[in-house]
């Protein structure tokens, strides 16, 4: 099947998502960052499932609380062992939507934003797996990992992995709603702002590329 045909078969919401990338943004102040976090049934992105997604957007380096997304997903797979971390029960009081619906809404929300997450590779993989189950291509967005960004601002590249908890302590960020997708997304967003301030010290005119290049 040619790429063209494949594209033609894509559902409307995914086409809209792709179209958003046509727009080219130069000015860092106009770049929309969407900080997100997923709560999952486990750490295996093949067999585990997303329980909830929480996001908050940053524009002009301000967290815009009104530009957020939060959803809880109905489960077929359920791993009771992780309940005590995220507190989401299979049949809870929260209103839940299907995985397909959540992906649809998520893509509609993130559009062409630069995605930001702590240890982003895992969350991106979880979303991509969900997309795959829907026969859809992977995410197209640029991604910033706050874990990597932290190392970058400190000119270190060791193998030590700092958890969100550790970085919140280092950066004196008051933690609440830890282990809810939205709560973690918000903490990550504050961390991102603090790291960006450090990056600005290095680059008088901060550009988007500075977030990705090493030094």
């Amino acid at each position: 099947m040619s790429w063209f045909n494949k594209h033609k078969d894509l559902p409307e919401f995914y086409k809209t998502y792709l179209n958003a990338f046509e727009e080219d943004i130069q000015n860092i102040e106009s770049v929309r960052f969407v900080v997100f976090d997923t709560e999952t049934t486990g750490l295996n992105f093949k067999s585990d499932r997303i329980l909830s997604i929480g996001t908050v957007a940053i524009l002009n380096f301000q967290i815009d609380i009104s530009d957020n997304f939060e959803c809880f997903i109905k489960q077929e797979t359920f791993n009771p062992e992780t309940v005590e971390i995220h507190g989401i029960l299979k049949e809870g009081s929260l209103s839940k939507i299907s995985e397909e619906e959540s992906i649809k809404l998520f893509l509609g929300h993130i559009k062409n934003a630069v995605l930001v997450a702590h240890h982003a590779a895992f969350d991106i993989a979880m979303i991509n797996e969900a997309l795959k189950r829907l026969d859809l291509p992977k995410l197209k967005n640029q991604v910033i990992d706050t874990g990597k960004l932290h190392k970058k601002t400190k000119y270190i590249n060791d193998s030590k992995s700092y958890s969100l908890d550790e970085l919140c302590r280092i950066f004196n960020i008051t933690m609440h709603d830890r282990h809810t997708a939205s709560g973690d997304a918000y903490l990550t967003a504050i961390l991102f702002l603090k790291l960006t301030a450090k990056l600005k010290l290095k680059h008088k005119r901060l550009r988007l590329k500075h977030f990705f290049s090493w030094f």
Partner: peptide
């Protein structure tokens, strides 16, 4: 839609 962050700000 639930808005955990807004509730915390409240």
């Amino acid at each position: 839609m639930k808005n955990t962050i807004a509730e915390r700000i409240l």
